[in-house]
Design a protein around this nucleic acid. Structure first.
Length: 262
DNA sequence: AGTACCACCTGACGGC
DNA sequence: TGCCGTCAGGTGGTAC
């Protein structure tokens, strides 16, 4: 679930539900999701404070704590937020819960525990420490062309490399390459400046479209691969058949007919 | 610099 | 119905 569009949907969800409400209690159900902090510290930092806004960089979400640090949330492969009335989690795998004074609860659920919750003082420093490139929806064409073009390797791997551009994962790299009609194993350094520029345009369009669809597969345009992304499916664009391909150990899906290898 | 592979952890799903 | 292998959108470390 959690690539840039998914995290952006979570960010909007947090902003529409959880701002300007003092936190009364913090419950940590699994201390292993905390990185560099403790349940006690988290509770002390948040007690009586509200979230004022939420920011996102790539797949990372940051809630701005009133007069405090940022609450950093990463979703791993299975994380999501749930806001509801009452102090019970209301989800199957609650890992941390923020109970507001108004009786509502924001739950961080994460079945597979790959994500993390931490406190961040300085966002720029955090991005440097994690070697994160510019956000994929924020980067301008020139910078995108420069950064992607500086890489060798295969284009799918390059797009998924958070150091190059942050936010694109396995699913959306497939979607972007599908729209760009580009084979996943195309050597990145074979791409012309025009091809890289087009790739940037497709990146922006795909990510924005996914956000507008609320990342609900049923709401994607018919021309999108995601809703049918599996081996043997009919290509949404031609009479080809969707194929599976392994790229750097990840399973990708593409249409060999309209994304021919160079 | 890039790639393949393993690990982390849990659960869903298909095959037998 | 039940057991078992396989796979899953994330990142990070290893060896090559």
């Amino acid at each position: 679930m959690p690539e840039l569009p998914d995290v952006e949907v979570q960010r909007r969800y947090l902003e529409s539900t959880s701002l300007h409400q003092p936190v009364a209690e913090v419950h940590v159900d699994r201390a292993t999701v905390l990185k560099g902090t403790t349940p006690q510290q988290l509770g002390a930092v948040l007690h009586g404070k509200s979230f004022e806004s939420a920011q996102r960089h790539g797949k990372h979400l940051f809630a701005v704590i009133e007069n405090g640090p940022l609450l950093h949330v990463h979703f791993g492969m299975t994380g999501f937020l749930k806001y509801r009335h009452g102090s019970s989690p209301g989800t199957d795998h609650p890992r941390a819960r923020f109970v507001f004074a108004n009786g509502h609860t924001l739950t961080y659920d994460n079945q597979r525990l790959f994500g993390e919750v931490s406190l961040v003082d300085d966002l720029d420093e955090f991005l440097r420490d994690r070697d994160l490139g510019p956000d994929a929806l924020d980067v301008d064409r020139e910078t995108f062309v420069e950064r992607v073009g500086a890489r060798r390797g295969m284009i799918k791997s390059t797009l998924m490399n958070q150091e190059v551009v942050a936010g694109i994962g396995n699913v959306y790299s497939d979607e972007i390459l599908f729209h760009a009609r580009m084979h996943p194993k195309t050597p990145t350094d074979d791409l012309s400046e025009d091809a890289l520029g087009a790739l940037h345009e497709h990146t922006v369009t795909v990510l924005e479209t996914a956000i507008a669809a609320g990342v609900d597969p049923a709401e994607f345009p018919d021309s999108y691969l995601l809703p049918v992304r599996e081996e043997g499916a009919s290509c949404p664009r031609c009479d080809g058949t969707v194929a599976k391909i392994s790229v750097s150990g990840r399973n990708g899906f593409y249409c060999p007919a309209c994304q021919p290898s160079a």
